[in-house]
Design a protein around this nucleic acid. Structure first.
Length: 576
DNA sequence: GCCGTTTTCGGCCCGACTGTTTTCAGTCG
């Protein structure tokens, strides 16, 4: 197959996801889940789906049977899927958009389209303002008001919230609840506990003997824009920044079950329920129970539930139904990297280029965070916009670092650079300078529109430069803003493993690049990664934790991450 | 549409809350 027409795994997955969405609108049961599961399998495939297809091995993959395999074949052969085209014709235009509005599901969306000819969110707001919705069965004045408000919120909303920016906000609410006397235990749950890169809303649970008091407290905290729901055990608020927060209150004896249940993911829970059903048990937010005998098997602590189901404890970051339940059954879960394993930060900017703080300021903040080294990796000359360093500048900075290191105790500053990879794969710093630096990161900062072949060759060329240690933010994506550039990651992974060049897990909240899914597939190749905060100010150094979270979501162990080594061991390894 | 240590057909998670209803459907997670 020609390079230019090669269908990417992500594109095949996207088609399957769309089929799932459309089937869901049509009210078809079970099939949407089947298509989503298949899409997820394709997404996390360590190799090209086309290669698998050619070998006739598609049906060996989890969630892919005869029917979906044939459809994937059609996508690969023709770039199209007639089944999807047909579904698109069946589902009236606009219905998908309408379902994006809070409180509108498939039933209401179809009804609005059918009865009122509403095709867009704009139409919907217009009709609501004119009071046209309340005439329809199942709609009333209240529904109309809520829809209007939901549309307004949606229009103001910045999309999904980035983990790195929203976790501190969520933790503040958590602390506030913890400080309320009627609250016993409190925890974040949902996607924020699983440390997903973006968060739709924040879920939390608390235990209390007086749930009503807790609900009153929760729904009257400062900074609330609207209370969406307030019940005895469950309430939902919207903060002034548009963030939605759900709180569930349970009894202390059911804390573990609630924590497990509300942490999800949905697919992970469905799999667990399946295990429970096989035992003749039932699993819900109140506990794992044997209905026949009327006994509670586990509910107090989360770990009890996994144990009772015959599983190793599964860390929240792994609960995405990517094979973790099977691995836990077999006792083969990875021993995930922990934040405390990280000894240093391998991507730090300073005032020398576009950073806000000096080298000593960054070093002292890092030491305060428990790190024992940082690598100063400012931009080089090509990035004039970021005040990139000339070669003389780099030499001068190296002298400052050397002098600083003589004054530091128990901490080392490594000299480094974030070189720019030009369109031909050349680094904008000469070998003579590169060879004297401790750490060389090389990244793509421009020419994102190159073809996949060009981009891949470009980065491979950079990797073949003997002095390059790390490829920075390897896919160039910016969350909520810029998709990854087209690059053949399987070739990058293979070469990274062959040449012992590391791939960065850039921990900056807008990047998280490599992504969790990329990390997951990289394991198959034996790639080593580095985690770097890409800090542009001392306050950013804490972002390192989000890189660790991404690595954990990608099943990575300590050994896969080079900055779990101490400074001496690391520099020796980089030189070898 | 997939799957299987109850297996090749019959399952596939389940409860809270809202707003509309007069006993429940729709939505959400």
């Amino acid at each position: 197959m020609k390079e230019s027409t090669r269908v990417r795994n992500s594109e095949v997955a996207a088609v399957l996801y769309e089929v799932a969405d459309l089937l869901e609108i049509e009210g078809v049961s079970f099939k949407p889940r089947a298509y989503r599961r298949a899409a997820q399998t394709i997404e996390t495939l360590p190799e090209d789906v086309a290669a698998l297809y050619k070998r006739g091995e598609l049906e060996d993959m989890p969630g892919i049977g005869k029917s979906i395999a044939a459809k994937i074949g059609e996508i690969i052969e023709t770039g199209n899927l007639t089944y999807l085209e047909q579904l698109k014709k069946e589902v009236p235009t606009g219905v998908e958009d309408l379902m994006g509005v809070e409180g509108i599901g498939p039933k209401k969306a179809l009804l609005l389209r059918e009865k009122l000819k509403i095709e867009s969110v704009g139409d919907l707001a217009e009709a609501a303002r004119k009071g046209k919705l309340r005439s329809m069965r199942g709609f009333g004045k209240k529904t109309e008001d809520n829809i209007l408000e939901a549309v307004e919120r949606q229009q103001k909303s910045p999309g999904r919230f980035l983990l790195g920016y929203i976790l501190p906000v969520a933790q503040e609410i958590e602390d506030r609840l913890r400080g309320f006397p009627a609250v016993e235990m409190v925890s974040l749950t949902g996607s924020i506990r699983r440390k997903k890169e973006t968060i739709g809303d924040v879920d939390m649970i608390a235990t209390s003997a007086e749930p009503k008091k807790v609900m009153d407290f929760f729904t009257s905290m400062p900074g609330i824009q609207k209370v969406l729901a307030k019940g005895v055990t469950k309430s939902t608020i919207v903060l002034t920044n548009g963030l939605q927060v759900d709180l569930r209150v349970t009894e202390r004896t059911q804390y573990g079950a609630a924590l497990q249940y509300f942490t999800g993911s949905k697919d992970h829970n469905i799999r667990l329920r399946g295990l429970a059903i096989k035992q003749g048990w039932k699993l819900n937010e109140y506990g794992l129970t044997d209905e026949e005998k009327g006994t509670v098997i586990a509910s107090v602590e989360e770990g009890d539930i996994y144990r009772a189901l015959g599983l190793q404890y599964i860390e929240p970051e792994l609960r995405e139904d990517r094979g973790e339940v099977k691995a836990a059954q077999e006792g083969k879960l990875p021993d995930l990297i922990r934040p405390a394993d990280i000894k240093g930060d391998l991507h730090v900017h300073t005032k020398w280029s576009e950073g806000s703080h000096t080298i000593p300021e960054m070093a002292s903040t890092a030491q305060g965070l428990g790190l024992s080294y940082i690598a100063i990796c400012d931009h080089a000359k090509t990035l004039a916009i970021a005040r990139g360093l000339t070669e003389e500048g780099i030499r001068e900075q190296m002298r400052e670092i050397e002098a600083l290191n003589r004054t530091l105790d128990g901490f080392t500053v490594l000299s480094g650079i974030e070189g720019n990879i030009d369109r031909n794969g050349k680094i904008d710093v000469s070998d003579a300078v590169l060879k004297d630096l401790d750490v060389v990161v090389a990244s793509v900062h421009s020419g994102f529109k190159q073809s996949e072949k060009e981009m891949t060759e470009r980065v491979l060329t950079a990797m073949h430069n003997d002095h390059v240690d790390i490829i920075g933010h390897p896919t160039g994506r910016i969350l909520n803003d810029r998709p990854p550039y087209h690059i053949d990651l399987s070739r990058i992974f293979r070469t990274a493993a062959d040449l012992s060049v590391c791939l960065e897990i850039n921990a900056f909240p807008t990047r998280l690049d490599l992504s969790d899914v990329n990390c997951f597939t990289s394991r198959e190749y034996g790639v080593r990664c580095s985690i770097g905060s890409d800090a542009h100010a001392k306050e950013n150094l804490r972002y390192l934790a989000y890189g660790v979270a991404t690595a954990r979501r990608g099943w990575l162990e300590k050994g896969a991450i080079i900055n779990t080594m101490g400074a001496a061991e690391l520099t020796a390894w980089l030189r070898s």
